[in-house]
Each structure stands twice: as C-alpha cells, then as structure tokens.
Design a protein around this nucleic acid. Sequence first.
DNA 1: GTGGTCTAGACCACC
DNA 2: GTGGTCTAGACCACG
Lengths: 134, 134, 134, 134
Amino acid sequence: MEFQIDPTSRLPIYRQLRNQIREAVARGRLQPGARLPSVRELSRRLVVNPNTIARVYTELEREGILHTRPGLGVFVAEPKSELTRKVRRERLREQVDQLLTEAVHLGFAAHEVIQLVKERSEQFQWPTSSRKSP
Amino acid sequence: MEFQIDPTSRLPIYRQLRNQIREAVARGRLQPGARLPSVRELSRRLVVNPNTIARVYTELEREGILHTRPGLGVFVAEPKSELTRKVRRERLREQVDQLLTEAVHLGFAAHEVIQLVKERSEQFQWPTSSRKSP
Amino acid sequence: MEFQIDPTSRLPIYRQLRNQIREAVARGRLQPGARLPSVRELSRRLVVNPNTIARVYTELEREGILHTRPGLGVFVAEPKSELTRKVRRERLREQVDQLLTEAVHLGFAAHEVIQLVKERSEQFQWPTSSRKSP
Amino acid sequence: MEFQIDPTSRLPIYRQLRNQIREAVARGRLQPGARLPSVRELSRRLVVNPNTIARVYTELEREGILHTRPGLGVFVAEPKSELTRKVRRERLREQVDQLLTEAVHLGFAAHEVIQLVKERSEQFQWPTSSRKSP
DNA sequence: GTGGTCTAGACCACC
DNA sequence: GTGGTCTAGACCACG
C-alpha cells in the first residue's frame, strides 16, 4: 500500500492517513488479516513522527477497523458493526445530505450524482450477507 | 430561516452555521437574492459572538454563495461555479468516495446507498441551467 | 471533583484517570452538563503532562461520555448508548463472569457477591426509562 | 481442558491464558489436584512461545492457584486465601463498582445486572468451607 | 523486533 | 483563556 501525506493540506496528518486507510479497507485493497507497515517503518517512509502514526492505528483500532497484536504488528480486522441500525442509518443520511449539498453548489444535476455513485460503488467491497451486523 | 447551533457538537460553531447556510441554499430554502439576517441580529438570536457570524459570512462570500451589498445587507448570490468541469468533477468524485467508504464501514449494501441518495436528492434544488449530462 | 493518581500503580496514568471519571459519571457525582477541569489545570493539579490529560478527555469523548466545546472546555455529555443490545449484553456478561471468577478466588460465597452488588448498586445513577438506548 | 487463544484480541496472550485458567478453576472445570498440560505440550497445542506458557504458570503459582511439583508437573492447588477479610472485601468491592460503572454506561438497569449476576453465579463453583456470611 | 505510555515543549484554531 | 496537533526522545511490556 502506498500512503501519501500532503503537508500543505489544512487536514491534519493523522486525519489524512486515517482516511486513506479507511478507504483502502473499504475498497478491499487492504483485506482482513493483511498486515500494515509497522509504526516505525511508516513513520520513516512518510517522514512523520511515530506518535502520529501510532495515534492513527489506535483510533482505527477503536473504530474496529484494525487490530493490534502486541509484538507482531497491526492488522486489518474482520468487518463488523456494533452500532444500532438507527444510528448507522442516521450517520449515512448525514453523509448523503452533505454530498448532495456539495453537488448542488458545484452545479451538478441529480442524475449525474446518482450516476457517479453507481459507477464508483463498483470499486468498493460491499459486505456479504453473512456480515455480522445488527 | 431558522438556524440552530448545537453546543454539544464537536464541530466549531462557525462551521455549523456555515454548513447550515450552504445546505439551506442547496435545498432552495434560501433562494438567490434572499436577504440574510444582519451579523448583529443573528449574533443576538444564536447567542454567538458577532465575530463568529461575520467570519461565516466572509467565508461564504469568498465561496461565491453569499454577496454583501455594503449598507444593505448580506444576500444569497446567483449560483455560479467558476471552476472548470474537470475540477468540479474531481471534487464530486472525492465526496462520493468518502460517502461510499463510510457506507461500507457502516455495513450497508450498495443498493441501499443508491436508494438513499435518490430519495434525499428530491429534497434539494438542482440547477435548471443548460448544463448537460456528461 | 477530586481525582487522584497513584504513580506506583502498574495501571497507566491515563487509565487511572479515565476510570475515575467514568465511575464519577456513573455514580452521578458528575452530572450531564458539568464542566471538567481544563486540560492545563488538571495537568498542574495532578502533576501530569497535559498531553496525558488531553488523551483521557479525547478517549472519553469518543466513548460518548464527555464532549468538548472548543475554546470553552470539556463537559459531561448526555448519556446515550449507540451499541446493539446484543453487543451491550455480551460486554456485561464478560464483566460479570470476571467478577465472579475473582470472587471465587477470594473465597466469597455467591450470596455474598449478590448482596454486595445490591448494596453498591444503590450508589449509582441508573438510566431512567426515557433513556435513549436501542 | 481446551484453552483457546484469540490472536485478534488486544489482550496479551499470557493474560488470555491466565484468565482462562483462573476462570476454569473458579467454575470447577479444573478441580484441585488436577494436572495441567506441561509447558512444552501446551506450547505446541496453542502454537505459543514456551516462555509465555511458563510465565503464566509462574504467575498463577505466585497467586496460589497452581502448584508446581518438580519433575511431576503443574497442578491446581487447594483453594486458600491468605489475605485478611478486610483486604479481600475491599478487592471485591472494587470489582463490583467496576462492573456497575460499566453497566450504567451500557444503559442497563440495576435489576438487570443483579439478575445476570444471579444467573451466571450458578455456573461457578463456590467454596464449601465453613466460611459464614457477614 | 513490535506497540504502549509518558514527558517536554512548540504552534495553531476557536471563542 | 480553551482544546487540537505535532515533534522529539525516553522507557517499558510483549513475543
């Protein structure tokens, strides 16, 4: 996996990296069980303080996306969602409204947005029916 | 227009207000030419520092969403996007990928996301200009 | 609120503090809306690095127990649980089994444990029926 | 006895195994006098470093739960607690408060916790000694 | 080797 | 004033 940090971005480094890992997992480019670079290695590679990398890994572990095996490294966790259906639904709705707001201001038409969502969704790895979710 | 500040949100006040105005415009609840409350009035109504309100108006003016007519007030601007099609398309794609990433981690299926986008899009006011689909 | 750190404990400082805040909230000694000491103040009081205090506050915010109002301080959040009933049940069961294991090894009888749970439970602030939980 | 190591757990291996043995003894699934697998054998079975197994046995021996008879193997010790009633009581109280704190934050009611403690307690093997209730 | 914790001190955004 | 982010560098626990 290639991760990239833009130091000129107003988005904090740890958020940039966190987003990239989240997306890589969602696309299936990082499969469950895959090992991520060690804190120290990624720190050297991105020229970022090890604490910052560790923070990203810790946060993603608390989100249930990664898991740490002490002494061995950090790995992609099996997907699971422990949140209520209601909460999950609400979060999704917020994201959708945010997308639509942006789309209107960018001057797109509704059908263009829907079309793009359909296209891009093919590049993501959607949960199978056996997925553990409420 | 009723704006609401949620003090329990981790989102800064000025971002909450900015988002609400952006969304109100995108939904057509604030039409081009509509006058917004004065900085002083909104400041009183929301119990928020006037500097914070002024900052929001300034930022939205820089984005081309609002327009200040000195001595008269702040108004919703005519929609226009000075960005090239390529840049706008790229921004939309980023937003879509972000939505899809979130959706996967929340455990939704692709068709559920598409369905929700369709539903919610009916509540927004899409441009009527001569813009064509890609 | 009086918080106390035992530097000789094998439990990390941030965990000690985190547990104390969690318990204070659960007992109702810290009510929703109450303001906690600022990072810097608590840092001085406990002679602990500000980063360590900030870490505790951040973690408890992500657990939904505290919330931060930038520039104003950190406050106790309204109680809510976004987890599935199943997950919550499972977590409780684990805690109970852990307690019972400990009790057996300490040489207590079952009725003594149950009696103590009843007694101590009166000192905690249990959710009301209107509590938002799945 | 079947012991299981969950490599996805954030709990160190030696803690997982230690907890499982403690719990098995408390439930009576490992009776006093029972022989545990040798370090070497358990190491092979769980695919875990022998040092890690040895560490667990050593710790549990220090706790008085296991007893090593050189050349013969490791055995479950007779239950005894050398702690004063006061210390034991205090430890139990801490565990109970920890459970109740967790329960409140998970959104349970007091009677639900008490009910679960009663239910689960039937699966444990309580001391039959002459100890009396307080 | 791995990650986890803590300190010290800097700079920024928010109100 | 408040919290948020980042760096540098130390020490410990784990396997």
